[in-house]
Design a protein around this nucleic acid. Structure first.
Ligand code: FES
Ligand code: FES
Lengths: 145, 145
DNA sequence: ACAATAAAAGACAAAAACATCCTTATTTAA
DNA sequence: TTAAATAAGGATGTTTTTGTCTTTTATTGT
């Protein structure tokens, strides 16, 4: 519905990495994928993208892995989503018209634009850290056993 | 974002057909596609699906085409969407967990479930006819010139 | 230095979504 | 009763998304 598989895996992985960010050791791709039930190599690609976009940090070599800086932990979800789905995703027309505009709106525009706004608010108002905390406190999960 | 191309074309086509339902003549696929700027054959397939699901009516042969009964005009959008995207689409987990549940929620569950509810409301509260009327009164459009 | 480790990168494969084309079935007007 | 029109159906093709496998590059502990 809202997110592509790529985006789902990306968010889940980032949240897992964030949830491990108290520890000093970095988190390897293997461990990440086990804990979020995502395909190993595909997820690695996604993390590459996020790393290039400076939403994650990584280190190669022995004892390497992924980790997040304090700054990265404070990023709102919307930054992650836009990095993966593209900046435009939250301004396109819901019925697929070439542009979403008030001047020539589609028949769903009013209601859709309002919901799209809710989505934006949700994604802007939740940081990766917020989500990680809900994991750490056992209030939320990244896979179902 | 919300809808697949298939769904977008399906909705646009249905709304166009609805907007022509005052006339006695039925509406051909050619005319439909011109007016919604959608691919001819692909859209035809989608209309087949909607017709099989009794959300549209059709007639073959000379002067045939698509049309909608009074009852069909009153269907809320959600019926269209579920016919195309599948019934489950509005109850799946936003982060792709196997199930969306209150018991083992994903970290986005609370906010996502609420938005998903808004979407359901929007789609339940708008009939195809409603959208067609906004077209007919020039308040909305199905393509941008 | 060297071997081991782990991410990055690139090539490839499978599945799904999107799209076209051709044939068939049905209807109607002439 | 026949020809034209029009949707339905089936086969096929293309593109995008999703996923795997292999090689390369960087880092580090020994
Ligand atoms: S024009 Fe369709 S959502 Fe704005
Ligand atoms: S569990 Fe993820 S949206 Fe409900």
């Amino acid at each position: 519905m809202l997110f592509s598989k790529t985006c789902e895996y990306g968010i889940r992985a980032a949240v897992y990495i964030a949830s491990q960010s108290d520890k000093t050791e970095k988190t390897g791709i293997e461990e990440i994928c086990e804990n979020i039930e995502a395909p190993r190599h595909f997820t690695a690609k996604i993390l590459q993208i996020l790393t290039r976009n400076h939403l994650l940090s990584s280190q190669k070599g022995v004892n390497g892995g992924f980790y997040m800086t304090a700054e990265q932990l404070q990023q709102p979800m919307i930054v992650l989503v836009e990095a993966i789905e593209g900046k435009e995703v939250l301004s396109k027309c819901g019925l697929g018209l070439k542009a979403c505009s008030e001047v020539e709106p589609c028949p769903l525009h009013n209601k859709y634009a309002s919901i799209r706004n809710n989505i934006k608010q949700m994604l802007s108002g939740v940081t990766i850290k917020d989500m990680a905390v809900s994991l750490q406190t056992g209030k939320a999960f990244l896979k179902i056993d």
